[in-house]
Write a protein that binds this DNA or RNA. Structure first.
Lengths: 192, 192, 192, 192
DNA sequence: AATGAATGAGTTTTCATTCAT
DNA sequence: GATGAATGAAAACTCATTCAT
């Protein structure tokens, strides 16, 4: 799985880009084939069906995201610093990979999402949950369900990244810390 | 526009429900027709195309949402109370209308979104922006771009409503105030 | 039949124009209705079906053409002069009524033509046949089947009129006598 | 272009025959597919749309016609003999290929004709024009615009071929020379 | 007589998938 | 493994015709 066949990777990347542009249903397999410079039938050597391709692509980008997110995380640092670092890394990942951002958003909100849960690569999430749990246990974060917390934070990140690309509200990377402060103030425990 | 032809309304409601279940492309016009108890061709009497139907449906639900949101808002009350009331109304609207929730989420993240902007009913947004501006001017909220603020808040609401229906994290209406507190603490001005 | 109801005439004229522009199948009944400023159903008061409308329209224009053609014909004149007069009248009729020209040409070459022969208004043709027979009997025209002769002559007229409207070969009314001379030289008896 | 894929040719021939029988709009793609023994989608492998299919079919038959017409033409022969030979070849081509005859006639008189001019294969026409020019230059033909002359002659041929198949006027191949004489007498220069 | 909303069979076209090469 | 022509079910959309008003 680590060393993907060149072809397979080409198919993934083509699909990612085309879906961002045209959506799932504006992206026929023939178009993927052409962009990936393979034959139609070749895609079916690697993937059972279009659904499978998309589900596997989801896992593929999820893994990439996880790898990027915790890079540079330093467990020695203060919690707040680590929090800011993680959030900003996450934002920057989406900004570097808009295809991934839009693909994931479409995927999550489509009926694909509930078809076959594809054994979500939970490693990434577990690491996040551990981090959040530590924040709660040490009294830095509000005492809440960590899954709920994780999702609220992620939603904040996605919204920020989407705004970065939107035409209506123009923000840039310098605005990020202020935006992160919103979620930080939101989740931190103010009682102390 | 207020008194929609019965047929048109039936088409809207059928589409809304079917799209929630099956997505845009899992919802052929023939299926909409059957559910709305009209002939295929009748839909095309009211809408030029499937795209048009969906775009108009978006405007239709947006308006319903706007109407519901500010109901019961009391300008005499304290800002924080009004904030909580608005957020909770918004959450409850989505919870009462899951079809609308999922439709909007799919729509926003689909290529439909950027096709024909359909003169977004901005009235609702303007009222929200005025409210937020007042919060900033009186020093209650962080001094930020109100559009950005509005979107962050809305994203928080949507995430909450989606969690309500999710299988993975089980929350219920009693948890809402805590969740609202996260966004309130996030946007409020802590400098005082 | 002589005094057509206004509505019926409006339907005829609208159909004629639309078919010239868009052809039979680019001209839906709804379009005819709109252009004639009547309701869809109204057309069906006057005509059983689209096929009937078109067949009756064909008879309608055929009659108009016959009426125009022999106008000004003077039986006292010499045969050649009458021939030139008839041909030129015919050409000018088509040039004044291009909608009719193109409608007839489409009709004749379409499968409509052989469906229900609509008791072709043969009066016009009989008068022509009589004229040609007289030409043959007096030795002015080649001794040929008069039906054949009639059709060859008519085809020449139609071709001339179509050329008048074509972009590729630009002719105008001054060229007509020369063109008529071609058919005259063709059908006249050179043996004398 | 010379060696057409078998499938493509089958589609062409099926379309030609069906359109003769039923006209453009009485000939759905599914019917073409069935007659050509291919799947519906296969047609769209070779042609972008029904319009394209028909436009390309027009070019296809035009080329066949051109190839047939000048076969056996002997430049050493006298002009009149060559003229008769060319006209008779043309007539016989249409009589051998009635599908082509009726298809062309429908095409020319339909709105298809003016859509996309499909780079008319003008080679055939140029050869004809050269021939006519020579006739004029040597004083055999009337001094007229050669394009006009060409069209008048072609119209005469088409009319003759259509009569051959008509029920109303019964002619056969023996009548052809007499009919050709009409157009020959029409176009020849009688001044000498 | 006139209307025009409603019908639904029929049309063009698309596209995930297969399979002979 | 790789190809891409071929498949055909299913989709969006059209339009002649009807019928309640």
């Amino acid at each position: 799985m680590d060393i993907l066949a060149e072809k397979k990777k080409a198919i993934f990347e083509s699909t990612l880009e085309l879906i961002k542009e045209n959506g799932f249903h504006g992206t026929p397999m023939s178009m993927v084939a052409k962009k990936a410079c393979v034959a139609c039938g070749t895609i079916y050597h690697y993937f059972d069906s279009k659904d499978t391709l998309i589900a596997e692509l989801y896992a593929y980008v999820k893994k990439q995201m996880a790898d990027a997110m915790f890079e540079g995380d330093d467990e020695q640092k203060e919690f707040k610093d680590r929090f800011y670092h993680l959030i900003l890394s996450h934002c920057r990942f989406y900004i570097k990979h808009p295809n991934t951002l839009y693909f994931i958003e479409q995927y999550i909100n489509s009926p694909y999402n509930n078809r076959e849960p594809v054994k979500d690569n939970e490693q990434f999430q577990h690491r996040m949950w551990d981090f959040l749990k530590q924040g709660i246990d040490t009294g830095v974060l509000k005492p809440m369900n960590i899954h709920l917390l994780g999702i609220l934070i992620h939603s904040h990140v996605v919204t920020t990244a989407k705004l970065y690309f939107s035409q209506r509200v123009k923000i840039n990377e310098e605005d990020f810390p202020n935006i992160v402060q919103v979620i930080w103030d939101g989740v931190k425990n103010h009682s102390d």
